[in-house]
Nucleic acid binder design. Structure first.
Lengths: 309, 309
DNA sequence: AATCTGTTTTTAATGTAGAAAAAACAGCGC
DNA sequence: GCGCTGTTTTTTCTACATTAAAAACAGATT
């Protein structure tokens, strides 16, 4: 039937909020909570009922009142707070990109469902979505084909990425200096310098910063296709990044410097300079991905499940 | 449960082939048929069994033999030969793009299922696919939002289209003159001239020719993202084309001429000329879409309410 | 040995059911 | 009127069941 992950997530969120309240303080109204937790009042009521049952809140004379602070054991495990679909997405990405899975192999929906502990319906829905990442191909009335993160794939995705990012810089430099994206760029630049100053310790923070820089640029494009495509890139790189950890600090340092050059070019608002710096950085990133593909995913835990040839 | 559309489609295909056979002639082997119809032998056997039952073939001394030629009544209606998913796709596109449906409206899966005569599962799977066309937005645990074919949408889709098509011309002109895409271009050009010579009668054939030209160019890109995107464009335009039929012949004539210029530029392999002609044509096409949006879909199915003006 | 056909086993497509969540409704207090 | 809570109605989500189609298996025929 239907999992109650929304309830569990809301319950946990609610507990976190209550931790800041004083004992005996009155809780906000149901509609209020519904709005802050971004769920329906129906769910809020279920949460409140459950909290009352656990004895964390109780009905005082004028509304609900906090009886005791929540402890660690009151929370639901984090794993259970992802919706079935989101859970499948994560497990699937890890399985396909970090596991022992080769281009050209066929996927079996029933097998995956068993392994991930969900129904085939959920698996199917997710696989269908995943087609658009370009890694899966559906063969009607038959299995799914994994096309693999091959050199061809890298070329294709980077060709599009370059077009889109260059285009996005055009809209970026149209914005006034005091617009939110430029403010964000200031912050990003500052973080770059901070990170470079302490690169030996913190070089692992690079991917998160990289994502932030490229995303703020893409988002100014105001183009849903460009932004959606960046979501694909972002997800993908989150996983392929782990394939090759050799020279990681060295590579991140280079990329950070390229970012600073790129940012400087953006500030100059000189299209030619921007194109040059952007292209240069993406060339480096493309080469990094190409190397990662040579390495391939770690073979730490080969799983023979759901595989056929 | 599961529709038998594969069976019906194969049955019809089989009948079409038999029409060319002589009475008494032996049929090909099962595996042979399975290969030519591109289905499994299981399906072929079901078709053959059904044909035997209808008396169209019978088991002679040495294999199956054609008894009588099929007549019109033997075929299944074409409508039934689309898989549930494909049928929903078509009905949905017609409903959303040709029907009275406004940007910002919410879609109700159960309602759609009832209206289309399928299950909610099928509807859901299709709606999920449809997100990436950029016209629908999913709101978890709630309805789907139709974002509408708005001027913004037109701008966004054409911005990407222009980038992609220009990029595709780069790979196109790399190919040798005698490669299949250039052969196809020759054929397309010839059809353009033939159509222009008889434009008064045949101007309605333009969309099909337009699709052929742009597709052959996009496909040489060898980039799955570019090709997938052209599928989106192609589907979309197939429907929005019907929104505005004023000056149709005039508009098609202009577009055909622009195509010929574009083709000429491609032959010259001069990038600058190609860019100019391609951009010019896409500008025209973009303006046509913009005009269509002004007209909107509210013409094909006049509302049953009130009197005509 | 290779190809054909008859049979059995798997797997994907899709409808249905039931729980969770949202949305709508209704009465109450101010 | 406005916001709050209790109740009822819809709608989405997801497990499961069932059938169509594919794939695998096996004997027969050339």
């Amino acid at each position: 039937m239907k999992g109650n992950t929304v309830f569990k997530r809301s319950y946990n969120q609610c507990l976190r909020r209550l931790a800041a309240h004083d004992i005996g303080a009155a809780l906000p109204s149901e509609s209020d909570l519904a709005h802050t937790l971004d769920v329906s009042r129906t769910t809020v009521r279920a949460v409140l009922a459950s909290l009352a049952e656990t004895g964390i809140v109780s009905l005082g004379t004028s509304g609900r009142v906090l009886v005791r602070h929540p402890v660690e054991a009151d929370y639901f495990p984090d794993m259970q707070t992802l919706s079935a679909g989101a859970a499948v997405e994560r497990r699937f990405m890890e399985w396909i990109l970090l596991g022992d899975f080769r281009a050209g192999q066929l996927l079996n929906a029933a097998e995956l469902a068993r392994q991930f502990g969900t129904s085939t319906t959920t698996i199917r829905e997710y696989l269908a979505q995943f087609q658009h990442v370009g890694l899966l191909e559906r063969r009607p009335n038959s299995a799914w084909l994994y096309k693999g993160v091959t050199p061809d794939f890298a070329t294709e995705i980077y060709d599009v990425r370059e077009m889109f990012e260059l285009r996005a810089t055009r809209s970026f430099i149209e914005l006034p200096d005091d617009s939110p994206p430029w403010r964000e760029l200031d912050a990003i630049e500052a973080e770059h310098r901070a990170l470079l100053a302490n690169i030996d310790e913190e070089y692992r923070r690079f991917p998160q910063l990289d994502e932030r820089l490229h995303r703020v640029i893409h988002e100014t494009s105001n183009n849903r296709f460009i932004i959606d495509f960046y979501d694909v890139i972002s997800t993908l790189f989150h996983y392929t990044y782990r394939w090759n950890r050799s020279d990681e600090q060295q590579r991140n340092t280079v990329a950070l410097m390229e970012h600073l050059d790129y940012i400087e070019a953006l500030r100059s608002r000189d299209q030619r300079a921007i194109d040059a710096r952007c292209r240069k950085h993406l060339r480096t990133a493309r080469a990094t991905l190409a190397r990662s593909i040579e390495f391939g995913p770690f073979r730490s835990q080969p799983s023979p499940v759901g595989v056929s040839t």
